[in-house]
């Protein structure tokens, strides 16, 4: 199965413009709390609004906070991000603590992260210092000028050699007028 067929689009870990190195730009732009004033499912969100929302807005002046009361509909948090993503999250029947945590997630994440499948848990722009492998790395330079086919490059040079044979070759190499290529190896 190829990755194209999966439902979630594949992505790598990334930080927009090296966010957090030197300065931090909050990626969350707008957050909307939709809730009902009377329904029990919105109880947790109402508690959050009563106890934490003012403090949240004060601490994050870069985030626009909207509230939208609506009758007898389940509570929802919608976040809009700097890169255009829109994250919709149902908080029906969620408790006050859970909602506090989810709002923190919405504030700190950088876009619709959970809708993509991470191909790897690490990423680098420079995977290799010496450069990727090519067919020309570790190539014998002699091959550039060789006239192929040549038994020098084609013959098996890893056959086992007897000690007698090795001694004979060492003796032959000591002779002055013998070139190394002309040495006869035993068959």
């Amino acid at each position: 199965m190829s990755a194209k067929n999966l439902f979630l689009p594949a992505a790598f870990v990334r930080a927009p413009l090296q966010n957090g190195v030197g300065r931090y730009v909050c990626q969350l732009q707008r957050i909307t709390f939709k809730f009902c004033k009377s329904h029990g499912g919105s109880r947790g969100l109402r508690d959050f609004i009563e106890q934490n929302l003012v403090e949240f807005a004060k601490e994050n002046p870069g985030v626009v906070v909207y509230m939208k009361p609506r009758r007898h509909r389940s509570p929802v948090i919608v976040g809009e991000y700097l890169n255009g993503d829109r994250v919709w999250m149902s908080v029906h029947n969620k408790t006050h603590d859970e909602i506090t945590k989810w709002v923190e997630v919405m504030r700190t994440q950088q876009g619709d992260v959970s809708s993509s499948r991470l191909r790897k848990y690490q990423y680098t722009d420079h995977p290799s210092i010496q450069g990727p492998w090519t067919p020309f790395t570790f190539k014998i330079p002699e091959l550039n000028t060789a006239q192929l086919p040549d038994p020098k490059f084609g013959a098996n040079n890893r056959l086992p050699q007897s000690a007698t044979e090795e001694l004979r070759l060492m003796f032959e190499k000591q002779k002055l007028n013998v070139k190394e290529e002309e040495l006869k190896v035993a068959e």
């Binding site: 190539k139 490059f153 013959a155 098996n156």
Partner: peptide, 22 residues
């Protein structure tokens, strides 16, 4: 060992044989 010239001019490597040629 007669190979057309247009094939042979691409060859840049030789695979080593398995057995020694007597």
């Amino acid at each position: 060992d007669k190979v057309p010239e247009d094939v042979m001019q691409n060859v840049t490597n030789q695979i080593r044989q398995i057995r020694l040629v007597p």
